[in-house]
């Protein structure tokens, strides 16, 4: 099949950047979207041009590296699917597709489609962990955890840290990511103990990293490749308010 890509090219953080159109006449419906870029890059290399820079690693939907906004939608049109798992059979022959990087103040563009997502790491560093020293843990069976809690914690824990939620949110907010992590840890007895300080630290780190405020728009959950439910934000808000209340 033949596709036309309009891709955001930007030489570096200081460059203004703009869309550039490329034809890929030899695409196949079995290709993944990233393989389409591989094919294009191979051609650009052959003609001496710089290939399009984009983030990717596992190519199986789990590392969270891939990060393309395809026709305005982070990770493209297929629900619950990362860019690397999106295949061209979901596009029409002859279609023209716009490809852009994640856009947010907290995610400055490094080059072309590659952005800096270290803000997400800073949120975790602020409190996204259980203070469990290595080497001297209690017996794993000492604390049974109700299956429902364990399952709900797992659901929240499946977040791959891709940042699509931020890319989709009209406010550039990372609430879904932050709340998913806080929910995962807060639901487990091991993590409950320090939930107050955790959520307080995480929301501050979130705001300091230039992410916007959540107004419950719900775009984030719609694009989240792991389908993290919006409910985690409600729970997180309750925890933040509760922490503030108990802190007084």
């Amino acid at each position: 099949m033949k596709l036309t890509l309009r891709i955001w090219r930007q030489k570096g953080p200081e460059d203004r950047g703009g869309m550039v159109a490329y034809d890929v006449p030899d695409a196949s419906a079995d290709m993944s979207f990233l393989e389409l870029l591989d094919v294009l890059n191979e051609r650009l290399t052959a003609s001496g041009e710089e290939p399009v820079a984009f983030d990717h690693d596992c190519r199986e939907g789990i590392c969270g590296a891939c990060s393309l906004v395809i026709d305005g939608v982070p990770h493209g049109p297929q629900k619950a699917t990362t860019t690397c798992q999106l295949h061209l059979r979901h596009f029409r022959d002859g279609q023209s597709i716009d490809v852009e990087p994640w856009r947010a103040a907290a995610f400055p563009v490094v080059k072309d489609l590659v952005v800096d997502r270290s803000g997400l790491d800073r949120i975790i560093e602020a409190g996204g962990y259980v203070t469990a020293p290595t080497g001297a843990a209690p017996e794993a069976h000492a604390t049974p955890i109700p299956k429902a809690d364990a399952d709900a914690a797992f659901e929240a824990a499946t977040c791959i840290g891709c940042g699509a939620c931020v890319a989709a949110c009209p406010n550039g907010s990372a609430m879904l990511f932050t709340a998913a992590k806080a929910t995962h840890l807060g639901l487990l007895p091991q993590g409950k103990v320090e939930q107050d300080t955790r959520v307080d630290a995480m929301i501050h780190a979130h705001d300091e990293a230039d992410f916007g405020g959540c107004t419950n728009t719900g775009e984030c959950t719609a694009v989240c490749p792991k389908g993290i439910p919006l409910g985690v934000i409600g729970r997180f808000n309750a925890d933040v308010l509760g922490a503030a209340w108990r802190g007084r």
């Binding site: 962990y129 259980v130 209690p138 794993a140 049974p144 299956k147 364990a150 824990a157 993590g191």
Partner: peptide, 22 residues
């Protein structure tokens, strides 16, 4: 065996049965 203890303490959400055990 210590690895499992360590990971559970860190909040790794291993699968559990209805009794709440691993």
């Amino acid at each position: 065996t210590q690895i499992i203890d360590q990971c559970v303490a860190q909040g790794v959400p291993f699968a559990r049965d209805y009794g709440g055990l691993l």
